[in-house]
Amino acid sequence: MIELLLALLLGNGPAQAERAYEAGEFAEALALYQAALEEPGAAEGSLLYDMGNCAFRLGRLAEAALFYRRALVRMPRDEDAEHNLRLAERRLGLEAPLGVPLSALAVRATDALAPGLLLALAAALETIGLLGVVFLRRRRAAQLSAALLLLLALAAAGRLAERRWFPGPPEAVVLSAEIALRAEPHAEVPAILRLKAGETVRVLERSDRWSRVLHAHGGGWTESTGLGLVE
């Protein structure tokens, strides 16, 4: 507690937090990282990752998964955060699917790039594809490849536009040990689906008490307190 007060007063939160973490005082380290996160200009991705480590050490695995996911929004290619997230989810009993769909892989690959870089890549692929289609009219195979490049470029541009202007419903992590999805926002309504801690959902509507969410296996209403928004 004294460390936390000192850090708040002196503004040297991350160093204090790291010392607390190394001393095994993970709750205090988490509070110190939280305070450091509120400082202007803080390296949010790194701090959220460190907070994830604190939550992991405290045994709050769903919370750790939430922090790692928040860190990955800010550091999309961070291998450490991905590794720790996988580990937290494995300990929560959330087995990763054996096969990942190609579309999901493509989305993951494009999301790993910075928006500016993705736009430049899309424009370059588009230019090559269009010129290929124009110049290689007599070579069918080459023209087909150029057309594929063009499609790839347009898909990348589409994903960028989706990320930038149409991000879709926000993602959330289940923090409670188990939450029930119900057809109506009332506790008396029977559960239609139960989700475990660490699972992710898309939040379609949200109020202080209830959230309407969408999961891979269905959708429904659940109490907002059991969810943590990723963004």
Binding site: D50, R57, G116, L119, A122, A123, R164
Partner: peptide, 27 residues
């Protein structure tokens, strides 16, 4: 889990919101 991030490091953090609509359409 892997270790803490070094203090002060902000490796490849995404800070920009993304291209403007004009730049996007132009490109």
């Amino acid at each position: 889990i892997r270790a803490l991030k070094p203090i002060g490091a902000a490796p490849h953090e995404r800070t920009q919101a993304g291209p403007s609509a004009a730049l996007f359409i132009g490109a």
